[in-house]
Design a protein around this nucleic acid. Structure first.
Lengths: 384, 384
DNA sequence: AGACGACCTGAATCTTGGA
DNA sequence: ATCCAAGATTCAGGTCGTC
């Protein structure tokens, strides 16, 4: 991979190839311009894989503050604003159609989104004729909490992986490599990665983030390692901070980026320039750092290992409490978590409820941690 | 909850309620018939939560309402596919509209699906006016492997949780109970459960499974514990083997099922009949602070817990303010509520005065929230 | 040097009730 | 319907300064 050249959409127009071995001038460049116009200027059937991170169409009303009153830096950029679902659908269809034209017959496309937009994207993909191969969940190790306690913590994003046509069977999927890298188990459709922060996150001189939604390189690495081969051409029509380009170069794939904002282009070009390609064979897939999967006490109740109404005691039977259907413990007219209730009855500040509370098993008193261990045995196969 | 009575859609038609305390005759029954017709026969705004597991195979041509009944000949694959999606969308819109009519204004709906149908369902939900609150991922501990090795192992299903309208803020979400049951961490949008097999899986005499897609009770238990209260009415328009009804009965919720196939109805009715409801006392949810009675700061002064002229400080004694006889705080020549004054001294927009301001008790600095708790204890004793 | 703690931040459709 | 005020609410992890 050579230097990153920047070209306008016009300059990137396809030329009659006098020498078919010549590298197209749009390869390994960032094209500045509107994504549909730029796609239309590329030759058809020239791209192996498309990764797209389109605007999510978040519909934010007021400001959101954390409990400490600090303000959440929201994604309120103009490019994420659409008038209606209809307008968003029109935008989606337009770029998906343009993307499909440049995709090779056996090429595949990845699109990432959240519940705000992913259902519309998925339906448009199907309407246009793409064939969904998988939806893949990016589980975040460190998602932003829900600050007002009115919903579940939004802890994942959804990716759709689709082939160009229902009958395109020749797409690239490195099944064996993925399996070998995953303890000889098939790679599942739920992946666990941290969000992009720390040293990987691009910052301006003033410390502000360069791009509001920079994706982690580990996520792109798994995508490219699973569905491309070395030398393939990867296109990203919403290039942003250039994660796709950086990972493609590192893994020996070619890239094409399309981006409207000059500031993003500049940052991405400098970033990619600094990337050292590695031998793909040496790339290790990121695996979970977490030792033991977290198990909710509620899961023990839901799974029937403990019935609501069951009585738990401490090891010396000095205190007891009743298991509630909601996964709390009741004692003396009050309800709290296993930990809080353990602390409360002892008059302490904190307590590990898993080891404090016991249940009567066939062979005597056992800590509820034994039941957690059973659950964990069942879920070991699912990964952390 | 009484016996499971079976009623036809016609028999379930709403009747003028002579006695508003009478239990509707469709409650805790399985209605046999087409889902849209049966929904249309129920009274509007009568359901608290809907759980729906709609079919997604497209071989239901006869059951789906095609916009154009005429046969299209010589269709190519692409057109045929488009027609199929269109038919599925029409079916989806029809039952979602009927479902929305019977939902209470603050009711919510859960729909589960896979990548085959969930994008269409999600887009239809949004188009109709439902407001998505979360998408929740059911991660399977033991999913079926991908036998051909051509895709990722399909290890999850997607659920969409939505309110009836964008502005319906009063929906039930048992945030505190979920948090208490999850190691005191808020519940995430990715849930881990085994698929339904073993003793829970309904089998025919010949060993065949009764229903192809029986959902695990643990999954429904989490759904109902998170978004319903005891006594709520839960409707399942694709009742199948009756998991929704069985879990609702066990957890002290009412159910309504709609199902076309007599074999499923028979199996579900027998299954639900055998369910033992858990003890009502164990169904009590961890209380949220929002649900507790409001106490005016003035009450603390009136009741003598705080004297006018008493000095309050923050936890680190950086600021102080004087209690006024009218229940305000004075500081720097100004008077304001405990909240406004807390915000003012810190230079913030908002502040919870109950936890910010402290008083000197015998055993050190305590938040005035402790005094509010005392008042509330008195209110509870009086039988609020 | 290393431990500790205060502080900051991330794709967010994030309150409720009474006048 | 709108307006206003009460008051409820966060997890993982990185950075940086202090001891």
């Amino acid at each position: 991979m050579s230097v990153v050249r920047l070209a306008s959409a016009r300059a990137a127009a396809p030329k009659p190839a006098a020498n078919t071995n010549a590298k197209p001038d749009w390869l390994d460049t960032i094209i500045k311009g509107d994504c549909v116009a730029a796609l239309d200027a590329l030759p058809e059937k020239s791209i192996d894989v498309i990764f797209a991170d389109p605007p999510y169409n978040l519909q934010l009303e007021g400001d959101l503050h954390r409990p400490d009153q600090s303000k959440v830096d929201a994604v309120d950029d103009h490019w994420d604003q659409f008038e209606s679902f209809q307008a968003y659908d029109a935008f989606t269809r337009a770029w998906l159609l343009a993307a499909r034209r440049v995709l090779k017959p056996n090429g595949t496309i990845w699109v990432i989104g959240s519940y705000h937009n992913i259902f519309r994207v998925g339906a448009s993909l199907q309407d246009i004729g793409f064939w969904i191969l998988n939806d893949v969940i990016w589980r975040k190790t460190n998602p932003m909490p829900n600050f007002r306690g009115r919903r579940f913590q939004n802890a994942h994003e959804t990716m759709i992986w689709a082939s160009r046509d229902q009958n395109a069977k020749g797409y690239t999927f490195n099944y064996e490599a993925l399996k070998a890298s995953n303890d000889d188990l098939q790679m599942r459709s739920d992946w666990l990665f941290p969000i992009c922060n720390g040293g990987e996150r691009l910052k301006k001189d003033n410390g502000d983030k360069v791009h509001p939604t920079q994706k982690p390189e580990a996520l792109l690495a798994r995508i490219l390692m699973s569905s491309t081969k070395p030398g393939d051409v990867v296109l990203d029509p919403f290039f942003g901070s250039g994660t796709t380009g950086a990972v493609a170069k590192r893994l020996g794939r070619h890239f094409v980026g399309i981006e409207r904002e000059q500031a993003y282009i500049d940052a991405a070009a400098a970033r990619i320039e600094a990337v050292e390609p590695v031998d793909a064979a040496t790339l290790k897939l990121v695996t979970s750092k977490r030792a033991e999967p977290r198990v909710a006490f509620l899961t023990l109740v839901e799974s029937g290992l403990l019935q609501p109404g069951a009585v738990l005691t401490d090891a010396r039977k000095r205190w007891e409490a009743t298991v509630q259907a909601d996964g709390s413990l009741a004692h003396g007219g009050e309800q709290a978590s296993i930990h809080r209730m353990g602390a409360k009855v002892q008059g302490l500040d904190a307590c590990n409820g898993w080891t404090f509370w016991h249940f009567e098993s066939g062979s005597g008193l056992e800590p509820i941690d034994a039941l957690r261990a059973e659950i964990r045995k069942g879920i070991a196969a699912a990964g952390a």
